[in-house]
């Protein structure tokens, strides 16, 4: 077996914010009706965390459940456990009209840390990044310049950005450019 390698091999950049390709993450896309009690129960049982509300993330230990749309969730877990978790989910979901797919190798995760992360994100995405509108624990699917991405604010100084692996170098270049030292806007 070949060794799994993350998209940019943990590339990092220091500027307005610290940009870090966050390495290998287990990522599972879940499709199903959140309002369906069987679906919600099966997901919560296997994930070990509660179902998130609209545009929110629920975390526990090294597992996070991210709200992606009214019928889609993204489950983050350790890379090595993704395959097993998909099997468990598929069993738990049974006949429910739902789908669990391992997308760990199709996505890439970036971590942005520092006091200016809101500045950096606001330069790239058409999102209201004011602390009143976008609070820790919230997630927003949007675009960063020309590519689709999801941004999750873990806390006031940490954000995680998830996008397709195929655009990882583009996203890294974007983030580094937006984090160029001396380019802070300072409105947040």
């Amino acid at each position: 077996m070949s060794e799994p390698v993350s998209a940019l091999n943990a590339a990092a950049f220091d500027g307005l914010a610290h940009v870090q390709e966050a390495g290998l993450h287990g990522m599972i896309t879940l499709r199903g009706d959140h309002a369906d009690a069987d679906f919600a129960q099966a997901v919560a049982d296997v994930a070990g965390v509660a179902m998130p509300d609209q545009r929110e993330v629920v975390s526990g230990g090294d597992t996070s459940l991210i709200w992606m749309s009214p019928d889609e969730l993204l489950l983050l877990c350790p890379y090595a456990e993704a395959g097993e978790t998909v099997t468990k989910l598929t069993e738990a979901l049974g006949d429910t009209h739902a789908l669990a797919v391992d997308v760990s190798d199709a996505r890439v995760v970036f971590t942005l840390t520092g006091t200016h992360i809101r500045d950096v994100i606001a330069k790239l995405a058409p999102v209201d990044m004011s602390p009143a509108a976008f609070r820790p624990g919230m997630v927003r699917r949007t675009r960063f310049a020309q590519v689709a991405a999801a941004v999750w604010l873990r806390d006031d100084e940490t954000a995680q950005i998830i996008c397709f692996r195929s655009v990882a170098p583009y996203m890294f270049a974007l983030l580094c450019n937006a984090a160029t030292p001396g380019t802070e806007v300072g409105i947040f």
């Binding site: 609209q54 545009r55 749309s69 058409p126 675009r143």
Partner: peptide
């Protein structure tokens, strides 16, 4: 109306 986001036209 599905995710409650105030989305700008380019999104």
């Amino acid at each position: 109306p599905y995710c409650g986001v105030h989305a700008e036209e380019t999104e």
